[in-house]
């Protein structure tokens, strides 16, 4: 409770009357975090300060946030963060996959990391598998086509040999 400006005074009554009208007359935009931080660090220009203060006056959560942030900005944290938080947060960013030194020449040749070729390599493997499958299918089909006539011919030859073989004429 403010000792100097208790809610029993006329100031409280005046502001209670004026507050809804003042709030409805303004439509403050929510400042971005950098603008709020600049306000707390006293590096914001006059127009920026007015915008932040209008937002704080009109939005209860805004004032709550800025009061807490102001208090903290004047105090160094007293306790360390839990080790589990640090390790979880560090795990949010993964280390890049190491490219072996032996691939250095390849990087120089293609102009960028060999890792970038990975999707292309998979696409190539897939295409090669398709080509091999199609080729195998085609070979198999041709092989079947050849085999059947050969067998037919063999049967026919046997029959024809009996009819037209010149050797028969010699007999």
């Amino acid at each position: 409770m403010s000792e100097e400006y208790g809610n029993g005074g006329d100031g409280a009554g005046l502001w209670a009357r004026a507050r809804p009208g003042w709030r409805s007359a303004i439509a403050p935009e929510t400042p971005n975090p950098l603008m709020l931080a600049a306000y707390l660090d006293n590096t914001l220009n006059e127009a920026g300060r007015e915008a932040v203060e209008a937002w704080m006056a009109a939005t209860p959560e805004a004032l709550e946030l800025m009061v807490a942030a102001r208090v903290q900005s004047r105090q160094a944290p007293q306790e360390a963060a839990p080790a589990s938080l640090v390790s979880r947060a560090q795990g949010l960013v993964r280390a890049p996959v190491a490219v072996s030194a032996g691939l250095g020449w390849l990087r120089g040749l293609i102009g960028f990391e060999p890792e970038a070729w990975r999707p292309l390599a998979w696409a190539g493997v897939t295409a090669a598998l398709l080509v091999v499958s199609a080729g195998a299918f085609e070979l198999g089909r041709l092989g079947t086509e050849r085999l059947v006539p050969v067998q037919t011919a063999a049967l026919g030859d046997d029959l024809e040999l009996g009819l037209d073989d010149p050797a028969d004429d010699l007999i």
């Binding site: 403010s2 400006y5 809610n7 100031g11 409280a12 502001w15 209670a16 009357r17 004026a18 507050r19 809804p20 009208g21 003042w22 409805s24 007359a25 303004i26 403050p28 300060r49 007015e50 915008a51 203060e53 209008a54 704080m56 006056a57 009109a58 004032l63």
Partner: peptide, 23 residues
């Protein structure tokens, strides 16, 4: 009961001071 306040009657800082000291 809404009382119209002329735009600019109170600056944002004045309104903020009243907001902090009273409510």
């Amino acid at each position: 009961v809404k009382v119209d306040i002329p735009p600019g009657l109170l600056s944002p800082r004045q309104a903020l001071v009243l907001e902090m000291l009273y409510p």
